[in-house]
Write a protein that binds this DNA or RNA. Structure first.
Lengths: 342, 342
DNA sequence: CTGAAAGCGCTTACAG
DNA sequence: CTGAAAGCGCTTACAG
């Protein structure tokens, strides 16, 4: 049987309450006594029982709010699945998790929901920020003034006092892809980079990592100027058509954002999908279909489930177990997938 | 606030005890009443509180035994790390997990420990079986006669009544590697396969998957006869030297088991480590060193942490929450790693 | 500065 | 066939 607070209390000749105060630095305990209690707890190898703690905390009715943007995209849907799993888990432990889903990217919407959450007495917030001074300001205020901890996921906003960011490391992701691309095209020839919106930071860091790695370790690979398809398949197809007309000797295409379908349909129409190596991001259904057809050769995944699950669970551990994250960054795994290990 | 048993009991006009019996099919409840209770619980969206359940179960002092073989190998050490993490978690919820580590592979040792566990009243066992009729017999007896559930991890033994296997899918792992190998050597030329012990089933299925995929989709790749280095670096180096003498035009080497160091040291001595593409298994420290040096190009991982963590947690859910695994197979992710996404 | 007591939601012997 | 009660290990108002 595991050691309990009561056993420590008995051995120290005090009450459970006092042991609790000594162990959790709550003050109001004679210093020597506190030291003695800590000593005994170490000796006995005390580990707090999580179930007991969760039960006791349930009385407080702790509430976590999660704000999600761009819910219309398939990738974010996978993130939401992770949030819902965490919600189930937290609620089966006596907490409350409410998910607020909004379409598109709009910092003001996020700020409005944050205000509502504050009014309704939520104890912690997880959100997916976009680049916005107002949002940064609001986040700082929530953390510093209102003492409501905030965690960011999928995208980050620095210098806001947010506790932790859970998401991908764009630079490493781009480097990983570059190494793979270099290897599968035999380290030579032209490569086209098709990105999404030119203002999307997260895509830009991928491209940055990709270009840096190609320049450093694959000198015989020629990178064409990056193209921006604004996450639209019509545009990504158009771009591919145009570039292929000008550069029929392209050996590889790197699809950085959404838009794989447009690129692949162009290659298939020209019957060159087996000749040109294609790497795309995110294990969404549409991409997987082209992977199965050998039109996309590799997919780079960023573990959307974890991006949804972890923020909520991290806040649970913070509120229920007073456990803070070890690092302010929690990068999700960079997955390399073929049709055989999907 | 979440719905509790008490709320259902109040609404149905019975006691908590009766609700429990109705919801968990424990009998001794009037059929119509049971139906009414189930109806109410659905209506209210009842979900049992895991913390409450864990607390109540703690009284039973449920004990899980985990038997690990070949603990001297670095890969299994990573598995043990996963078991220890699960042990911490289960024990902080009021259960007990004891880990029994034995060197080498010996079915009789495993059987002896199983007997001890039975004598000491353990409630469930996770083990890493080797091919053995006696062990298969013992497992069947434990499951059927003693009603002690068993879960296998890392390696499996079928038709033993074991509840679930947690580990890799060797065939898919081999296929994944073959696709990657084909791509990075330009789908042509000679490939050498260096395996471990020729009697190791798990390695043999990897080779099987690898060869099947090469034959099917990479017709211009020439596979040399597989070599067996018995998981020894001296032998793997010797083999590589010999084969390279006979086939200086080799383009790729697939290291299936332990022995990457021997192969790499040979390539480095001949200064051809950048010319020949090398893929090896398992993210152990030794392999990672050669990956960082670009001598090994890709590592295929099989998530040892999950192989240790999941069996224990699965048995916890079984004992504490009466939740059985959905499938008798739980395959771990097949990871493709370069030095950039390790 | 310290303690006795209630209660979180569940399971389970024990009565009836 | 059903209920009242105890207890799992913790936290926290409330007393003193």
């Amino acid at each position: 049987m595991a050691v309990t607070l009561q056993q420590i209390a008995d051995k120290a000749g005090v009450s459970r309450r006092t042991v609790d105060r000594a162990l959790n630095n709550k003050g109001h305990v004679n210093l020597e006594l506190a030291e003695k209690i800590i000593e005994i707890s170490k000796e006995l190898g005390y580990m707090p029982n999580k179930a007991g703690r969760a039960m006791a905390m349930a009385k407080r009715n702790l509430k976590i709010g999660v704000i999600v943007q761009a819910v219309e995209t398939p990738f974010i849907q996978d993130v939401v699945a992770g949030i819902e799993d965490a919600k189930l888990k937290v609620e089966s432990l006596g907490g409350t998790v409410d998910i607020f889903q909004t379409p598109g990217i709009n910092a003001n919407t996020t700020i409005e929901i944050m205000e509502t959450l504050k009014r309704k007495g939520y104890h912690a917030i997880a959100l997916m920020p976009s680049e916005s001074k107002e949002l940064a300001l609001a986040m700082r205020c929530f953390v510093k003034e209102y003492k409501i901890p905030i965690v960011t996921f999928n995208s980050d906003l620095e210098n806001t006092g947010r506790l932790c960011f859970i998401g991908q490391n764009g630079i490493r992701s781009g480097r990983t892809t570059a190494r793979l691309m270099g290897d599968i095209i035999g380290n030579q020839g032209k490569v086209l980079v098709v990105s999404g919106e030119s203002t999307n930071n997260s895509l830009n860091t991928r491209v940055e990592g990709f270009e840096a790695e190609i320049k450093k370790n694959h000198p015989n690979v020629i990178l064409l100027e990056p193209q921006y398809a604004n996450d639209q398949n019509e545009l990504s197809r158009e771009i591919t058509e145009k570039i292929l007309d000008g550069h029929p000797d392209i050996r590889g295409i790197y699809i950085v954002g959404y838009g794989g379908k447009g690129v692949c349909d162009c290659l298939i129409a020209r019957k060159i999908e087996k000749k040109i190596k294609v790497i795309a991001h995110d294990l969404i259904e549409e991409n997987i279909r082209y992977l199965e057809k050998d039109c996309i050769d590799y997919l780079i995944g960023q573990d959307p489930f974890v991006q949804g699950y972890e923020p909520t669970m991290l806040l649970y551990r913070l509120l229920f177990e007073s456990v803070s994250p070890k690092s302010p960054y929690r990068y999700t795994d960079i997955l390399i997938k073929t049709k055989y290990n999907i």
